[in-house]
Computed example of a mutant assay.
Amino acid sequence: MSLADPARLSPHVKDLGGGFLVRRLLPSAGRQAVGPFLFFDHFGPITATPADNHDVRPHPHIGLATVTYLFEGAMMHRDSTGVVQRIEPGAINWMTAGRGIVHSERTPDDLRGATRRSHGLQLWCAVPAAHERDEPSFQHVPAAALPERSESGVTLRVLVGEGHGLRSPVRTLSPTVYVDYRFAGAAAALALDVAATERAVYAVGGRLRLDGELLPEHTLAVLAPGTTPTLEADGEARAVLVGGDPLGPRFLWWNFVATDKALIEAAQDDWEAGRFPAVPGETEFIPLPPRRPRGG
């Protein structure tokens, strides 16, 4: 498989200021999703100072589930269902937007005056069409509740779904897998024993090889169905595997996902008109971006 193969996706990189880089792998020009995952952002690592402000003000979502996973740092999640949850490394935080939710992600107050690290993944999953208009909800599964084991120099954690003989307690609306791999050093290797209709491996950091071929850092490699490739490291490294059953194409606009454009247009109107539920304790919000005229 050559590096020009469309099964290998490179990120679009955006600097949010102060060297805070976000790498977006999905959606891409050639592929909207892998399984249910249709948005894949890798942010950091960065060392933030007390002068830095990377807070994300309240903003809305419909028709998707956000999946937040940190390698370093912490953030405070607040949403319109009343949930207030500190997010820390190793935990899975799964927010189902359903018919509409608003949330913010801010630096915890105890870290604002400190030099701090920030590094993690923000993913979105489509939800089955029958659940697009469900009640919004949030589930937090702490790091200690997620299954983990070490073998052949690799520590693996099954964050969502099943793989390597382990099962995550995270509840999903369709078959979904998400596994974190941490390689201790050179010669660490592991067969990716994870069954799913669609799968992809992302090189978070370090020097990795997939079935003997270099997998460049920050590359998402879509795996052939029915295979069990071997992932190995030339030193300390980290990777994640994502996948599951595909749910079909979706319309995406800003923070909205839907099977029907009319749902997105309605969400645009509702956000502009202030009809989304408020986040308790929040007064700020992110305005709706400019949109095309209807039918445009």
Rank of each mutant, 00 (worst) to 15 (best):
T81L: 11
I101G: 00
S28V: 02
A74K: 08
H59S: 05
M95N: 04
H103I: 02
H103C: 12
E72F: 07
D41K: 03
V56P: 06
V83H: 15
E105I: 13
M95C: 06
D110C: 13
T49H: 14
P27W: 04
F39P: 05
G90W: 05
T49F: 13
D110S: 08
D109L: 13
S10T: 14
G73A: 01
D110M: 11
H12W: 15
H54P: 00
G17F: 13
H103V: 02
H42N: 02
P58M: 00
K14F: 14
A97V: 09
R23D: 02
D110N: 09
G82K: 05
T47W: 14
P89A: 06
R106P: 06
G30V: 10
V102W: 07
R99S: 15
V102C: 09
A91H: 00
A65G: 02
R23M: 00
G63P: 06
G63C: 06
L111N: 13
T47A: 05
R112V: 01
H42F: 03
F43Q: 03
I92W: 07
G44P: 05
A97S: 07
E88W: 10
V34A: 13
Q32F: 10
T96V: 15
A29N: 02
G44A: 02
P27D: 05
M76V: 15
S104Q: 06
L111A: 14
H61A: 00
P27N: 00
F20C: 02
T81P: 01
A48G: 12
T96L: 15
F40H: 05
L16I: 12
M95K: 02
D79M: 01
G19K: 10
R57P: 12
R99K: 06
T49G: 15
V102Y: 09
H42C: 04
I101Y: 07
N93A: 08
R8F: 12
A65C: 12
D110L: 00
S104W: 06
L26N: 06
T49L: 15
G63H: 11
L9I: 10
P45I: 03
F43L: 04
I101P: 07
P108S: 13
P108M: 08
G18V: 04
D110R: 11
G35F: 03
R99W: 10
L9C: 01
R99F: 08
L9T: 01
S80G: 04
K14M: 12
T96K: 14
V56K: 09
V13I: 11
V84W: 00
Q85R: 11
